[in-house]
Nucleic acid binder design. Structure first.
Lengths: 251, 251
DNA sequence: AATATAGCAGACGAAATCGTTCAATAAAAG
DNA sequence: CTTTTATTGAACGATTTCGTCTGCTATATT
């Protein structure tokens, strides 16, 4: 996809982040073009949104620039005034998407509601996220764009899945400190939990083999994953299982 | 991707499967075009191979038909003689890929080597399969093509992941019958095992966050997944959990 | 008010690629 | 042999899309 090399400077004149306000634009270092009529940030975001939608719907290389502009109710000239070319637009889309981050501070919730409940919430949120059709398609988009731009993929992973994973690891570590879990390597255990949550659902979603699971089903899956996870890693009566101690990774 | 509607008839005149031999072509019901010079099956497969490679490398919509023909050392006219259009070519690629199936008869192996060992083999094979970079890219390709052709995705799923899953389910069911596993729903349990095998690796592979894991690492993952799975589903003496009974194997 | 830029609509040339066609040759069947 | 089809290379028209540009109005700064 996207033939040419991508410009590292996503934007034309104003390297203005999507969320920047007009005031911010004025006061921050905007040496260029401070004088006349400022660019309308609304149009920019509309363009990104339209591009996102059409990239997803038709594919990055199939969606027409004109189409995108029309869809954003903006002239094509304005599109090109904001983004040098299709690649720049794609990068903006990905960058914007990366900023919609997933997770937050679950450790606090954990203190209030208990680990298991928090994990169930986390799982539900994660599964909802992972099975969201739009999300699935976006993953494809990213993965496709990755061919030309590995570092974009990395950034996306770190902003999205990686961050979720980190949160999960922290959560698990908390449980370990509290003695609720007996785990040697929280990172690996996080993988286990994720896996238990996922099962086949992600693959099924990727290939559209099933319809998107409903909320109730996801809730069940989340709960089930936590149950199994606890069964795996509950600190047992020490006699029967020295489990993760020696066994953890070594084999 | 791939704008037009796709012809269900992938081929132009001769609905000849990729592997068909010249004799087969003559003797099977080939009412059409039995007389003159037969089409060269080699060219056909070369075209599919070239298309596969270029679709993967550049994206389905970016690779040029001319390019593909050249790459296959075939004239463009011949390309169009074999495949009505790009979509037909794509379908042929996917269909061919679907025929490279994964799994076979593991239950037999299970009888010979024992369930756990067989599961480890299965897991290794599956993980190798899932993390193979080419495979990952092909998944993207499929997922992309899915937008226009849901039924192709279904077929692909059933030929690939679905078949693997079915094999795994059978394997687990065998274990249940033998009393090695205490499982109510083998399908769900298969999802668990798959999840334990996967952990984060698939996501990481999708986003190229890590390099493809080496064989040894995959082996460890496979073994670990089986170990955890057995711990989850070993028929326990209700009092404690003697899970670890025969945990020795993995190391 | 003067100035400078944003935004729009539309037209534009340039380039790429599609899928077809043609005449000539190659290979198989009758 | 003749007939029939495949294959080739090249050229073809048609179409699409790109990215630019022009004339005009709108909206901001100074």
């Amino acid at each position: 996809m996207v033939e040419g090399a991508l410009t590292l400077l996503a934007d034309r004149l104003r390297p203005c982040s999507t969320s920047c306000s007009v005031q911010a634009m004025r006061h921050e270092r905007m040496q260029l073009s401070r004088r006349g009529r400022p660019k309308d940030p609304v149009k920019r975001t509309a363009l990104i949104a339209a591009a996102r939608q059409l990239f997803l719907a038709k594919g990055v290389d199939v969606a027409t620039m004109e189409e995108i502009a029309t869809h954003a109710k903006v002239s094509k000239a304005t599109l090109y005034a904001n983004f040098a070319d299709r690649s720049a637009l794609l990068e903006a889309v990905i960058r914007t998407e990366s900023q919609r981050v997933t997770s937050d501070d679950y450790p606090e919730e954990a203190k209030a509601l208990g680990l298991e409940t928090t994990l169930r919430h986390f799982g539900l949120r994660l599964l909802t996220f992972l099975t969201d059709p739009q999300r699935v398609e976006f993953d494809m988009l990213i993965a496709g764009a990755t061919k030309q731009r590995p570092e974009l993929a990395r950034r996306f992973f770190e902003a999205g899945p990686g961050r979720g994973r980190a949160a999960l690891v922290r959560l698990i570590a908390t449980g370990v400190r509290q003695g609720i879990l007996a785990i040697e390597d929280p990172l690996e255990a996080a993988g286990d939990l994720l896996g238990l949550w996922q099962g086949f659902t992600r693959i099924e979603a990727t290939f559209r083999y099933r319809n998107t699971p409903g909320r109730e089903e996801l809730r069940k899956r989340a709960a089930r994953g936590v149950r199994l996870f606890m069964r795996l890693y509950a600190p047992s009566t020490p006699a029967s299982r020295p489990t993760t101690k020696r066994r953890g990774r070594g084999c």
